[in-house]
Design a protein around this nucleic acid. Structure first.
Lengths: 337, 337
DNA sequence: TTGTAGGCGTTATCAT
DNA sequence: ATGATAACGCCTACAA
């Protein structure tokens, strides 16, 4: 760890440590002359104050803990990029953890953080329907917490999500207006809050457009690509096959592409596809995929801004218990032309 | 931050803080009886030692700084996942920063870290040919540093890369043996060390197979997908078009797919494609893409293991100045059948 | 304007 | 087996 300390600088300059400290912090009660001297030496020796001594003294770490359920996922990467863009400007650091969609790991990570290692936590929880005892513990400590995307509904704090319902509705209406009459809604079996809202939008759109919803239009997929592809192939192989697909998760749109390719069914001529996705290369697929993408970077920025405000300003009230919705972006491409 | 301290526990139990500390650290010079008592209360009150007090005292942070040039990139996500899998097992934390391919930012991040905030640094530098003054500063402090993928050749430490040359060679031989006679090598214009090695492998493979290399087979692409696609379209539109493509970067393979799709040229019948890529969905493309993928997770694990060893064992020598090569994996799929 | 002293929470050293 | 004390590096009352 570091070697050059305030004490050392003080000694070199024949000053008291407190004077050096004040000079470094640009206190008004230090003469310009000594300020210069101190700053010059600090610069020369590349002095960096020991962050842990400072944290201990000030009772804050200038660090924010981030817990995501998955790292290999553009959405979460973009969110963190958004957060980092604001936290770094304020001298805050990001400790990032991957819970691997596992409540147990989530719990462990949380227990690492409540010791004061971080001043605040941003998280997207690993499962929707979990018991949230471990999250509730956070309430006792007064570490501010913010949720995004996969939110804990019970825990009273600010949560950032996107307008899943509306955009599910919008995507469905789009498919119907392009002529689709039998639309599949693809979702993962252990679906979370987002998927449920999206499905609600889907159903309401059908109703609005006077299309009778049938239960078997909702396809619960697994986490295995191969299985999903096989399942979809079998569905599309039938004569009365669907003519539209709304995929609530990116990987299911890709499975659809593969299945349709194998069965030689054309997109969008025979089946139109719309998917929730934050994939950068949606427009490089064949055909380019119509997407509903979440404002990931912006969600990250908002989470960070809120916490920075809470942490840096005096007398901030507790984070409001509310849900903030940031709209997703619908981008029409050839897959639903 | 935290409220429950060792001192508080000591007071509750009518013990000295030092005794409590020793009990918590399972010292052999504490009676089982008091150990029990202490542990029980600590458990009950959910005591977590203040990490910053400990860091200050022990002169180590149990934190490793990670600097990557880009977050929205499966390769780096996988690397970090690999690192986290080992660091967490040893109680180490990861502070992650994105330099956004910008040397200036990289410099700033580095200066944040040398204050003792981290016990070690893992980084993949933002550019190949940069002046590395800011990195050299690390030498003065004795913070261990490890590089991976985009390495600083001058800085004496252990570096982890993959066998770019060999696998570039292998991919090219594969294309030739499938019948390709005119193969394009696609690379980004501001290429880094990896790309150069891959190109070397490409050229040597041609020579070995008695195919005369022509300078215009190397296509320098830009960072704009649209431009790249247009460029490739123009190349493939000609009569004497190439019959093979080796893309040194994933995005260029995707541009190739798009260009070939637009010009109605079939993969692999008319053009075979092989690409360096860590994309999870290579097998869901149309057609599935033959890839050379870097052992990202493993690279992360190795970086972390090395540092953990250096940090946790006594009397470790400086990190050896050497390059460790972990082989990439060649996966043949339909795009080069 | 500058110096002195104490303490943030922990652990190691030296007593008892 | 346990207690008292000092120190890690920093900042902030309080003193001068």
């Amino acid at each position: 760890m570091a070697e050059i300390t305030i004490k050392y600088l003080a000694q070199k300059l024949n000053l008291a440590p407190s004077t050096v400290s004040r000079a470094l912090n640009d206190s008004h009660e230090i003469s310009d002359a000594t300020k210069m001297k101190v700053l010059a030496l600090a610069e020369e020796l590349n002095f960096q104050p020991n962050p842990y001594a400072r944290s201990l003294r000030e009772q804050k770490s200038k660090t924010i803990g981030v817990i995501i359920p998955e790292r290999i996922n553009n959405f979460f990467s973009q969110v963190i990029d958004g957060m980092e863009s604001v936290t770094r400007a304020y001298g805050y650091h990001l400790l990032v953890y991957n819970s691997n969609e596992d409540t147990e790991q989530e719990k462990n990570i949380l227990s690492l953080l409540i010791g004061g290692r971080v001043d605040a936590i941003v998280m997207s929880i690993s499962r929707f329907d979990q018991k949230s005892d471990h999250i509730d513990k956070l309430k006792k400590r007064n570490t501010p917490v913010v949720f995004f995307d996969r939110i804990s509904t019970n825990f009273p704090t600010t949560k950032f999500i996107t307008n899943d319902y509306e955009v599910g509705y919008q995507g469905t209406v789009h498919l119907i207006e392009k002529g689709c009459k039998k639309i599949l809604f693809l979702m993962l079996s252990n679906e979370n809050s987002n998927g449920i809202e999206r499905l609600r939008g889907f159903k309401d759109a059908l109703k609005k457009k006077n299309i009778t919803f049938e239960a078997n239009w909702v396809i619960e997929c697994s986490h295995s690509d191969e299985k999903n592809i096989a399942l979809l192939e079998s569905i599309f192989y039938k004569l009365d096959r669907p003519d539209g697909v709304l995929a609530s998760v990116e990987k299911l749109a890709l499975a659809t592409y593969r299945a349709l390719s194998r069965t030689h069914i054309k997109i969008p001529e025979q089946v139109r596809v719309v998917s929730f996705s934050n994939m950068k290369i949606a427009d490089l697929l064949h055909p380019p995929l119509t997407t509903i993408s979440q404002p990931a970077y912006e969600i990250g920025e908002e989470c960070a801004k809120l916490l920075i405000k809470k942490l840096t300003k005096k007398n901030q009230p507790d984070l409001e218990d509310k849900i903030v919705t940031i709209p997703s972006v619908f981008t029409e491409r050839e897959s639903s032309k």
